[in-house]
């Protein structure tokens, strides 16, 4: 399953298989992601979306197959990745500000650039007012915003998001979806966005991968070539949304 031929390939997933003991989760999956592409992955619960992202980031080893980023074996130490986890994860001993700065500190951003970017990102995701609070003093949706901000802040060239907006209210979700697209357009990052929400997938992605039930393969891919900003009530938008919903019904 290839990306459009005129773009450089960023990520190559080759015959990726993952087993947990006898449980076959990812079954010989192959696909490419182009440089700067925005991909959405939708699939049933427990099909291995999180597992896929974890193998991509080397948090867990693949059983077979390989994942290459820019032609090299994927590795967070050599590639500039950022990951927004499904479960909001903040470091409880750091304030909101220091949590957002965390990725930049680990990656060794120079001090002045770090400060400047920190203020910008805090304002962008609306965390300036609670920058000095600790994670146990803010709501769950704010914690998730911190995780998103931390990922944005490191200017990743590959941004992985695992149902990042599931916990947020609709208003904030729309706002952050637009922010994400804006960020993607300015940073030219490659984004892999896992979601349960079909409307969200169609709204943000250039291409949607629909996964099957376990053992998981890619069931279909849907190109979304709508102009941006997209409208949720555009007939073409609705048509694509229906198409993906149809595919998902067949699970």
């Amino acid at each position: 399953m290839g990306a459009s031929p005129d773009r450089r390939v960023k990520i190559q997933v080759k015959n990726l298989t993952k087993r947990f003991g006898d449980l076959l989760v990812l079954n010989n999956i192959s696909f490419d992601v182009a440089d700067g592409e925005f991909i959405s992955i939708v699939g049933p619960t427990g099909c291995g979306k999180t597992t896929f992202l974890n193998t991509l980031t080397k948090l867990i080893p693949a059983t077979e197959g390989s994942i290459l980023i820019d032609g090299k074996e994927a590795d967070p130490k050599t590639h500039n990745l950022a990951f927004v986890f499904q479960e909001p994860t903040c470091l409880p001993w750091r304030t909101v500000r220091d949590n957002v700065a965390f990725g930049m500190e680990v990656k060794g951003f120079p001090k002045d650039k770090l400060e400047e970017r920190l203020e910008y990102i805090l304002k962008l995701v609306g965390l300036s007012d609670c920058a000095n609070l600790y994670p146990n003093q803010i709501s769950a949706s704010m914690v998730q915003r911190v995780a998103v901000a931390r990922a944005f802040a490191v200017e990743p060239d590959l941004l992985l998001m695992d149902e990042p907006y599931g916990q947020l209210d609709v208003k904030l979700r729309y706002y952050l979806e637009d922010e994400l697209i804006r960020l993607w357009e300015t940073l030219k990052a490659t984004v892999i966005f896992v979601t349960h929400n079909i409307e969200e997938a169609v709204y943000v992605a250039e291409r949607i991968l629909v996964l099957s039930n376990k053992p998981t393969t890619i069931k279909a891919e849907v190109h979304v070539d709508l102009p941006r900003p997209r409208s949720l009530v555009d007939p073409k938008f609705i048509e694509i949304r229906k198409k993906v919903t149809e595919l998902i019904r067949w699970w």
């Binding site: 080397k58 990745l81 950022a82 470091l91 990725g103 990656k107």
Partner: peptide, 8 residues
């Protein structure tokens, strides 16, 4: 995991 994916 948070620090590992950041390349720590």
């Amino acid at each position: 995991d948070v620090i590992r994916v950041l390349g720590g």
